[in-house]
Design a protein around this nucleic acid. Structure first.
Lengths: 135, 135, 135, 135
DNA sequence: GTGGTCTAGACCACC
DNA sequence: GTGGTCTAGACCACA
C-alpha cells in the first residue's frame, strides 16, 4: 500500500464525550489491529487528515504524537509518520482493545437496564442472522 | 407514592470524570426505568436535593432540565418537577438502543479478529469481577 | 344555563410562558366575550375547577379574584362566583382582547420572519378554504 | 464569512420581561433565518459576546445551548459554536408554524365575533404604528 | 484561545 | 414553598 493512499474510514463526532484526538487515535489503532495498516505503511499527512476530518491540525498532531509515545508509529521528520508495530505489542494491544470495548459495551447496556444474559442472547441472535444471510 | 417521599439512593462522586449533573440524571433515569418512580410522581425539590447531595442548586437544575429535554419529566414552575413517561414508546427506544449497541460492539470486535464466543466469555469474566468487587 | 353545568373547554399548559392563573383568566374572559358565559351564570367552584385542571386551588382563587377586581365576576360568599358584565365593559374588553390577540399574532409571525402582507394573504386563504368547506 | 467577523446587531434589554438569554437566542435565530449567518459560520465566542453585551458568560452559554438543542448550531468544545442548519427542513417547519399560528389567531378572533376584514385592518393599523415608532 | 462544569448566592414570579 | 434567571468567578480539558 503506497503512502497515504488509504483514506481512513473515519468520521469524528465533535459532540461525543470522548475527545476528538482520542477518537482519531482509536481509529488508527483499530486500523493497525485489523490489519488495514501494516508495519511500514505511511499515515496520512497531518494537514491532509485535518482537512479531511475538518479538525484543527493540532488535534491530529496530538493524536499522532500519542501514537508515537505509545510506540505504534514513528515520525520521520520531513517524511511523515509511519506505522511501526512489533508482534508482541500487537497482541497486547489487540487484547487490551477487546477488553476495553467489552467494558464499554457492558456499561452502556447496564445503564439502560439490560443484563449480561440478555447481551449474550442478543449476540447469539445477531450471529445467527449474519450466518443465515452470509451462507 | 407521595411527592418527594422516596429519597434517592444516590451518592454523587464529585471527583468522577462523569459530571455531577450527569450522575444525577442517570440515577433518576434509572429510577424511572426501573419503576421506582412512576408517571406523575414528584421529584425532590431542587433545593432539597441540592442540600441532601451537597451540591449547588444550579447543578440539580441542570440535571432536571436535561431530563425534561429528554422527555422524562416536566416542570411545573412554582410546583415542582414531575415524572412524565410514556412507557410504551420508551421500551421501544430502549430495545432499539440495545440492539444497535450490540451490533456496534460486534462489528468492532470481529474487525480485530475476536469471535462471539470470546466476547461471551469476556462478558462473563467482567461480570464476575464486578460481582466480587461490588459484594 | 344552570350553575356549573358547563365545563370550561380549557386545558392549561404548565410549560407555557404565560402563567397558569393568567391562562385561566383569559379563558374565562373569552367565554364571556364569546357568549358562552352570560350575565348571572355561575363559575365552577374553585375546588371543582382545581381538580379538573390539576392545578393548585390557590391558583384558581387568584384567577377568580382578579376577574372580580376587573369587574367580570362577583363573589357571593358561600354561594360561589357569578358572571357580571355590563354592556359597556363588554364592548371595551372585546375590543381590547382583539387588539391584544392581533399584537401577539403579529409578534409571533414577525419573529419567524413573515410580513404583515403574508399574514393577510394567509388569512384570506384560510377564509376561502373555510367558505368552500362550509358551503 | 470568517469566524466571528460579523458583530451581532443586538442590544439586550435586561429590564424586559423576556429573559436576556431568550433575547439573544431570538436574535441569533433571526440572523440564521434571514441568511446573515449561514451553515458553517462560527458564532462569536461565549466570552467575546458576554463582554460585548455586558452579560454573564453563563447567560450566553444558556442561549447557545438552547440553540443547539433546537438544532440551529453545534458546539465544538475547544473550538466554538457553529451554525448548522438544514434550510429545506427549516423552511417546512417555518411555513407550518405560520399556518398554525394564523389558524389559531383566526379561531380566537372569530370566537369573539370579529371578521377577517377587521383583522386585516387591525394588522395594517398596528404595522403603521410600529413604523411610525421604529422609523 | 475555546467550551463546559460547578459554586455561592441574589432576585423574581408563581403555586 | 416552588422553579427560573442572572451574576461573578474558579477550574478543567480540549483545539
Amino acid at each position: 500500500m503506497s503512502p497515504g493512499s488509504r483514506p481512513l474510514e473515519l468520521a469524528v463526532d465533535p459532540k461525543s464525550a470522548v475527545p476528538v484526538y482520542e477518537q482519531i487515535k482509536r481509529a488508527i489503532k483499530m486500523d493497525i489491529l485489523s490489519g488495514h495498516l501494516s508495519d511500514g505503511d505511511a499515515l496520512m499527512s497531518i494537514r491532509e487528515l485535518a482537512t479531511k476530518l475538518q479538525v484543527n491540525p493540532n488535534t491530529i498532531l496530538k493524536s499522532y504524537y500519542q501514537l508515537e509515545v505509545d510506540g505504534f508509529v514513528v515520525s520521520r521528520p520531513g517524511a511523515g509518520y509511519y506505522v511501526r508495530v512489533d508482534r508482541k505489542k500487537f497482541h497486547q494491544e489487540r487484547r487490551h482493545s477487546f477488553v476495553r470495548e467489552t467494558a464499554e459495551y457492558l456499561s452502556r447496556i447496564t445503564e439502560i437496564g439490560y443484563s449480561v444474559q440478555e447481551a449474550i442472547s442478543e449476540l447469539e441472535r445477531q450471529l445467527e442472522i449474519a450466518r443465515s444471510k452470509g451462507g
